[in-house]
Nucleic acid binder design. Structure first.
Length: 524
RNA sequence: GGCGGGAUAGCCAAGGGGCAAGGCAAGGCUCUGCAAAAGCCUUAUACGUGGGUUCGAGUCCCACUCCCGCCUCCA
């Protein structure tokens, strides 16, 4: 509201109520929809980790002009079409690792609630019934109109389009209830059969599920005006007790060729298509690699750039993961404190310079502490995921450095360092941001053509019975043959196999511990 | 036209009165059968332009240029 960062103070101690505008499900979800979903997912995960009790609600606007138009065009009942795409949305969000909201209210299931709200607005004189049966919100009855978008009513009026047959008193008035037209779904109301206008559903459902003055309201920056502005007007007129929401978080848009990605421009890439090419944690990494308010350009170049960075993080995680296992199996976690380095909330306050029992911190433990601190500071400063990720990169460098030096894991300090690093990667990268897979080895290999085909078809198994598992087995076999060639120093043969595998997107690296491989999508 | 947001090295991108994060790319070295990965080092006059405020401005103020978003459905 002030357009500045404010100190967050919740309505109820220890609890955070968040509402974010969901989608109008009339088509497949694209990358632009993933951004707020993943961002708020991280907000929830982080706040939860910090000990907040989070209640998160996201709506489906399943009664809408576009849905009706699309449904009529396809000869399918509008609500069925909407339900189908809503399910589709949820299923791709599942694959992206987005935790389910506490509620996904649909307009069609809350008509009563909306009718009551409209009635009340009419009673209070904030809304009026027009001659055509529509009910409009009278913006002039709400003097603060425009406070979110910083628009003055006169300017809005000047810019408002006046449609044919307009029955509004003021051009900026907006419909809270629309009289039914032939062929449209409708519900009974005191003003005759009709359906809710856009905006009203978010007011009705957010107030219903979260109560007045809830903490955070979110959505894309393209919703600031008129959607959120109108929500505020009708909600605060309705309750008579501002503020409707205490804080507003608006995410920036995804662009392609510097233009907004949107359904209407037709320049979108569906999430499902992307999941066929890239692992979900990578897509999260891509979306979280810039601050949520910054526009994010989607192009082959930006994806390729992000991919290389992500690989670096992932390979470091793989190093840590392997060392952690080594430590656990060789030394046993018991004597070390299995949770060395774990601190609730991802924070690091308190034990700098000490590791649990009085040991001086080993270098890696210090690096872990530093990363946790900067991660935490970043997240507490307007959820700066870009900086949070950079603290992961700093840790990755320390990890790689120590992995290269390879000090004996029998050394207690070294062992504690590996465990602390593993816990940090797991807490920050896997659990909070979700930009790393819980098993780094699987992610490097299962992001394969088989997995891609499976994701594209929505099945676990690609056509032909190919699964990530048997596909991996095939690659392992080829590498085994190559290893035989290497054993007899047939470098020509070994290099040829490596080159040919590279042509189909399999990167092979030879290490002192043997060869390893990973799948590399095209174009990165 | 109105209202917002933005312009930071070759590219992406944090920061937002006191030494300019991080990633990618580039060069050198180490390691390596080779390659890759990784490490170390290096590279940059990097804060759109012009004024102003200040001991000090990338950061605050004014003007300007260009880009984007919203004002019509949008995440």
């Amino acid at each position: 509201m002030t357009r500045e960062k404010e100190r967050f103070v919740s309505r109820d101690p220890g609890r955070v109520a968040i509402y974010s505008c969901g989608v109008t499900p009339y088509d497949e979800s694209h990358l632009g929809h993933a951004r707020p979903a993943i961002f708020f997912d991280v907000v929830r995960r982080y706040l939860t980790r910090r000990g907040w009790q989070v209640r998160y609600v996201q709506n489906f606007t399943d009664v809408d002009d576009k849905i009706i138009a699309r449904a009529n065009q396809r000869g399918e009942p509008p609500l069925e079409l909407a339900a189908r795409y809503a399910d589709d949305y949820l299923s791709v969000m599942d694959v992206l690792g987005v935790h389910r909201a506490d509620a996904y209210p649909k307009v069609s299931e809350h008509i009563e609630l909306i009718v009551q709200m409209v009635s009340r607005l009419v009673e209070k004189g904030h809304a009026y019934v027009a001659s055509n049966g529509d009910v409009y919100f009278a913006v002039e009855t709400f003097p603060q109109y425009g406070k979110l978008s910083h628009q003055r009513l006169e300017d809005v009026m000047a810019g408002a389009r006046v449609e044919v047959g307009e029955t509004k008193r003021n051009p900026a008035d907006f419909a809270v209830w629309k009289a039914a037209k032939p062929g449209e779904p409708s519900w009974p109301s005191p003003w005759g059969p009709g359906r809710p206008g856009w905006h009203i559903e978010c007011s009705a459902m957010s107030l219903h599920y979260l109560g007045n003055h809830f903490d955070i309201h979110g959505g894309g920056v393209d919703l600031v005006f008129p959607h959120h502005e109108n929500e505020i007007a009708q909600s605060e007129a309705f309750t008579g007790e501002p503020p409707f929401a205490r804080h507003w978080l608006h995410n920036g848009l995804i662009t392609t060729r510097s233009e907004k990605m949107s359904k209407s421009l037709g320049n979108f890439t569906t999430i499902r298509a992307l999941l066929g090419q890239y692992p979900a944690p990578f897509l999260r990494f891509f979306l979280l690699s810039v601050h949520y308010r910054t526009p994010l350009e989607f192009s082959p170049e930006t994806i390729a750039n992000a991919w290389r960075g992500w690989q670096r993080l992932l390979l470091a995680w793989q190093q840590v993961y392997a060392r952690e296992q080594a430590v656990r199996s060789r030394v046993g976690a018991a004597g070390l404190g299995a949770d060395a380095g774990r601190q609730p909330g991802g924070g690091s306050a308190g034990d700098e310079g000490r590791a649990g029992n009085d040991h001086p911190l080993s270098p890696l433990e210090q690096a872990v502490a530093a990363s946790r601190t900067s991660f935490d500071e970043a997240m507490q400063d307007d959820f700066n995921t870009a900086v949070a990720i950079s603290s992961l990169f700093e840790l990755a460098r320390q990890v790689n450095s120590q992995a290269a030096a390879d000090p004996p894991v029998d050394d207690p300090g070294v062992a504690r360092g590996w465990l602390a690093a593993a816990t940090a990667f797991r807490d920050l990268g896997v659990d909070i941001l979700g930009v790393l897979p819980d098993d780094p080895n699987r992610a490097l290999q299962s992001a394969s053509p088989a997995a891609a085909a499976a994701a594209g078809s929505g099945n676990e198994t690609a056509p032909g019975g190919v699964t990530p598992a048997n596909w991996s087995a095939l690659v392992e076999l080829i590498l085994e043959l190559r290893q035989r060639a290497r054993a007899r120093k047939d470098w020509t043969e070994a290099d040829e196999i490596r080159r040919r595998l590279g042509e189909v997107g399999i990167v092979v690296e030879d290490t002192p511990q043997g060869s390893r491989w990973r799948w590399q999508p095209k174009g990165v």
